[in-house]
Nucleic acid binder design. Structure first.
Lengths: 204, 204
DNA sequence: TGTACATCAGTGAACGCGCGTTCACTGATGTAC
DNA sequence: TGTACATCAGTGAACGCGCGTTCACTGATGTAC
């Protein structure tokens, strides 16, 4: 058993987890503070002992999401070392895996309408995640002749955009109309992109 | 002056346009039927003369969005002919232009949580848009040796995902943290991708 | 160990609000003669 | 052209609902002596 606080014990985290479940189940709109409180077996008013209000609760859920996200991608990146290419591809796969495994966090982070600058903590977590991706891109781009090397931040923005687009269009509402799995789509897309940068053999 | 109906005249369309403005201004969550009615200078109850309810109003806005979207992309595609490459690139640019020019429609189409299968009309409009993109991809892929040619639907899914990702991450909240314009980001991304397919000279 | 006290997490009732939706109605518009 | 009638788009009042938030409180937990 985890350590308990005075009464409920870890109500703060229980509220966040309840909120995540609700967001996951009903979308960013479906989340209400009252229902999250109910999920945690507590009166709506109790929420105000731990959060300034509804938005703050979502912001904290998003922050935790960004922390996990950055950790996961950092880990994937490290694991792919010393090959810059392998490290980069692993990071891309980690992206999709995260969106699949933690849909509530993903929605809170990217679809809830929360500004990343709402709190300093959220901004920092988001910046860290961005940093990991950019570092992976910067590493990889050293293999490209300097004259035709795109800026690492552009490079990572391309991959981030492609990944996010695949998640939003093809990984929601399982298998709506796509004949390919999101994983295949992302992997082939990244492969073609990297080939375009001359990082993979043209006829590999 | 446009033709007027009995009382208000074109209340139906006025409601849709009011809804679009609200969605544009306050996000998909910020839209309420009552406020849309107010915008059109009408009682909330009047809405029910024209729509089954709130969701139906959004669905119709999304449908009109898909129609415009498909038209625009079809037009861009035709204009780029007979060069398959030019046609394809124009279609990509049209995507971003649409998202920029009609944010309300874009949000209703992709971010409102409305299922594309909510009404047959909406599903048809969405399918038509998808068809235009796939046709462009199919045309272009004839220039790739058959053995290494990816399926056209995968091809167009990559480009759609990249475009959507750029819109969602970098074209909202004008210039949050990106050092590049969404247009540049999308254009360079598509360029690198097409190079990866061997459709552009490696050192062009 | 036992008692008195302080802390503070969670309660429960209440609030004002705007929502989506319903209903019987009204009165401007269009039509038949 | 003028009158009587039918249509039906929009009204206005009402509804039940769940929301986020506030407040004085209570009572379990932890602490000092």
């Amino acid at each position: 058993m985890a350590k308990r606080g005075y009464h409920h014990g870890n109500l703060r985290q229980a509220l966040i987890e309840g909120a995540l479940k609700l967001i996951e189940a009903k979308g960013p709109t479906g989340f209400t503070l009252s229902e999250a409180a109910k999920t945690a077996g507590v009166t709506p008013a109790a929420v105000y002992r731990h959060f300034a209000g509804r938005e703050d609760l979502i912001a904290e859920a998003a922050r935790q999401g960004f922390e996990m996200f950055a950790d996961l991608m950092q880990y994937a990146f490290d694991k792919g070392q010393p090959s810059a290419l392998a490290a980069f591809e692993a990071t891309g796969r980690a992206y999709l895996a995260f969106a699949r495994k933690h849909p509530g966090h993903y929605i809170a982070m990217f679809e809830s309408g929360i500004s990343v600058n709402r709190t300093p903590e959220l901004a920092a977590a988001s910046a860290r995640a961005r940093g990991v991706l950019e570092k992976a891109a910067a590493n990889l781009s050293e293999h490209i002749p300097e004259s035709k090397r795109p800026p690492a931040s552009m490079f990572s923005a391309h991959i981030w955009a492609l990944s996010h687009g695949v998640v939003e269009l093809y990984a929601r509402n399982a298998g709506a109309t796509a004949p390919f799995s999101p994983e295949d789509l992302l992997e082939t897309g990244i492969g073609i992109y990297l080939r375009g940068l001359g990082l993979i053999e043209p006829d590999a």
